[in-house]
Amino acid sequence: MVDFSLDLALVAGVSGLLSLDRRAAFQFMASQPLVAVSLLGFIFNETALGLMLGAYLQLLWMSCVLFGSNVPRNDTLASVTIAGAVFLYGRHVGEIDPAIWCLAILIGAPICIAGQWLDIKLDHLNLGLATQADEAAQTGDTRKIAFLIFLALIRTFFANSSATAVFTASMLYLLTGLQGVLTANWTDVLGVIGLYLIPSLGIAVALSMLRHRRGIVLASITFAVVAAILTQGYSA
């Protein structure tokens, strides 16, 4: 139990730091699902699975872009929670098979909406900081302004890491419960979802970012050529 709590705290801590990188500070894009999940996989000694899961999640949330005043779905919170639950499952419950991580993606996808809601709430909370900054400027109190920035960072960190802890723990509970009732039929369903549905949806999301129609034609031609080469390679 102590082990488990430490691992959960680790996931929550990493998630908090990444949530800062997402919007509040630096923006080195370590918060992109691919990097975030690979990092988490590296920490939990599941590098190969982390990279693959990261690639799937990156494609699914490729179109989460922060344009101006618009707050998008929170891809970081969702993907870190999904990956965190999968890795914790591997450590404390049982072996990770494709059905488990497919199930995790299915359960965890809507967390991006919860994350968006959290971002909006934090933005509203920051209104108070803007008002306090006005007061600080009246008296030239630049330290106060620096402190307000610090406060906003701390708040973002704790809000996101506690949300991650709660979501990861509940998802792990769900995964453990569902794993017992998964019949062979359901494993088949999840296998098909993981092999066909999630990749094609991910590619579609990424393609929807392309600015020109010609881009989609180009992608289709590349697909045909590369697929032909790959199949030729195996039959030869």
Binding site: V192, A206, L218, T222, F223
Partner: peptide, 23 residues
């Protein structure tokens, strides 16, 4: 356009994976 190339290739890799799986 480059991104489109990469995405097409990625889709082909996924197709290849599906062809060599139990499903």
């Amino acid at each position: 356009y480059l991104a489109a190339l990469f995405l097409g290739a990625t889709a082909a890799i996924f197709a290849d994976r599906a062809m060599h799986s139990q499903f």
